[in-house]
């Protein structure tokens, strides 16, 4: 440890001691593992399916019971992506004529198959988010992961088809805006913000959830675009300048 590190540790020690005391106090009153009876969660487990017609209670909470909170989360996501873009995009020159093709046919073939598999998996996760485990957040991450695999499997030039600012930025904005638009549409119709206008549908099918389906897809688009924008920004700023020139 250097002297600066030791100094920092001494400054942190009293704060951490206080924190440890509060943590211990909290843990002493926490429920025994596996024996939690939260009134809110138990209630939702009983009423969410009859009330909202969505068999996945977690998604019903994300997009309905705590839908307003999720909008806040979505805008935190949006704001941090905007921050990354502001920091990285302003200072870099456009890269041209560079490529780093993947030489192995086996990796390319397997990679492209996996791109398709992961994309379908991501779309399935998002589409059936209100029925089975999944939802827009998880599906969006999987979709972005599938697309970024194009870079790993086949090289920069193939990735550049998808990893373009002009293609991704509109999706990023669209995802955030349409979540708010669904909420405002309810206000215009004279109902509370984010009220479900489209009817509840049939539980356990793709037609369940009503407005929640729209919110689910808005989040899927937002999360997928956010992840792809981040990949693009970091790739363009710190990997592409080191690619061999052709």
């Amino acid at each position: 440890m250097s002297s600066r590190q030791r100094l920092r540790a001494w400054i942190a020690a009293p704060v951490l001691a206080l924190f440890a005391a509060i943590l211990g106090w909290g843990f002493a009153r926490a429920p025994a593992f596996g024996d939690f009876h939260g009134a809110y969660g138990d209630l939702l487990n009983r009423i969410a399916v009859p009330q909202r017609h969505t068999s996945n209670v977690v998604t019903a909470i994300v997009f309905d019971y705590r839908g307003f909170d999720t909008m806040g989360e979505e805008f935190i996501l949006f704001a941090s992506v905007v921050g990354v873009v502001l920091l990285l995009r302003a200072v870099r020159e456009p890269a041209t004529g560079q490529d780093d093709p993947v030489a192995s046919d086996a990796i390319r073939l397997f990679g492209i198959i996996m791109v398709a598999v992961i994309l379908v998996f991501g779309l399935w996760l998002a589409a059936f988010g209100l029925v089975t485990p999944g939802g827009g957040f998880q599906g969006g991450v999987a979709i972005a992961g599938g697309i970024v695999l194009v870079f790993l499997a086949s090289g920069y030039r193939a990735w550049r088809t998808f990893g373009r600012e002009r293609l991704l930025d509109p999706f990023e904005g669209l995802g955030a805006a349409s979540y708010a638009a669904v909420g405002l549409a309810a206000l215009i119709a004279g109902a509370p913000f984010l009220h479900n206008l489209l009817g509840l549908g049939v539980a356990g099918t793709l037609r369940s959830g009503g407005s929640m389906t729209l919110l689910n897809w808005a989040v899927a688009v937002e999360v997928a675009a956010a992840n792809l924008v981040l990949y693009t920004e970091f790739l363009e700023s710190y990997l592409v300048p080191h690619l061999p020139r052709r």
């Binding site: 989360e73 941090s80 992506v81 921050g83 990354v84 957040f137 969006g140 991450v141 999360v223 981040l230």
Partner: peptide, 13 residues
């Protein structure tokens, strides 16, 4: 689940 996804972008920032 929402926090896991959001934290990734915050870490990126």
């Amino acid at each position: 689940l929402t926090d896991v996804v959001v934290s990734v972008t915050v870490i990126a920032l």
